[in-house]
Design a protein around this nucleic acid. Sequence first.
DNA 1: AACTCTCGCAACCGCCCCTCG
DNA 2: TCGAGGGGCGGTTGCGAGAGT
Length: 312
Amino acid sequence: MGRPPCCDKEGVKKGPWTPEEDLVLVSYVQEHGPGNWRAVPATTGLMRCSKSCRLRWTNYLRPGIRRGGFSDQEDRLIVHLQALLGNRWAAIASYLPYRTDNDVKNYWNTHLKKKLLVQQHQHQQRAPSTLSPPPNKGQWELRLQTDIDLARRALRDALSVPLAGKMMLSGTRGATAPAPPPLPAESPPPALVQAYALTARDVSCMLDGWARPTPGKKSGSPATPPPPVAAESASGSTSELTECSASISSAPNRRAAPVAAQLFVREEKAAAGGEEVPLSEIESWLLEDGGGEQKPAHDGLLLDAALYNFGF
DNA sequence: AACTCTCGCAACCGCCCCTCG
DNA sequence: TCGAGGGGCGGTTGCGAGAGT
């Protein structure tokens, strides 16, 4: 006898969400905040499973989500993190502040995996011997360490973009603003992406866009977030922004605390002169000074990750 | 124009972990 | 201490749109 389903199968609607359902869900979250998903169908009358509500919120309706148009920087970051962490999409997505785990997972499965296979194939044709197993453990470890160092450096470089973007956002709240990082041409400014307003007006604007699908595109499938909302929110009060971000960072995520959110909270507290939020192990490792020396604990962490990915 | 194929993505499913009584 | 319930995560599926023939 297995675990009972999270909700009754009878009378539960499946399939694509309608704009009306989205509106109901957004209104609920606006009023009660994200969480207690079990109560959502009962409270709102939505004929949806609680899980479905949570998924719809986290993957689609949640504030600050950027859809499509992955930049090269993000590509590289995902590839590096996948190599380090494996298919832990939630953990990987936590390093990409505007992406959901589902998005990252889909992007990996549909684009990056193929891309890597092609690259691997090309690499194999150029230098097949480099992919054969090293002759002894010592050499193998040496090569592994080199790979780890390279990955670490590349990851730190790649991470400097979202972190810098975050710092720029802080600038909009009054702190000194460093020069904005280079962004892909198609990417909206970070402030617009991050901006979010849980106001009835913005929700109605947002859903107004959905209600009028562009011809030739999926109905109810807003591939591009409605710009007016973001623009309005961006010009809104800073407290709205802070509240929004705080609600994101305070969302329960027991298994993999979003690093971006952690960084945000730490920065907020630091700015307020409050307590220092401790860095996670991998964060400390990334932000650590120096280009090669590593602490034993980190060695272990990365070696484990590498061994796992090498199938050991 | 009609049909088939391919691709991308939203959503579902089932397992697992954590919390709480 | 233990079991139930809620929520999170990763894998997979199904559908719609566009490309190709």
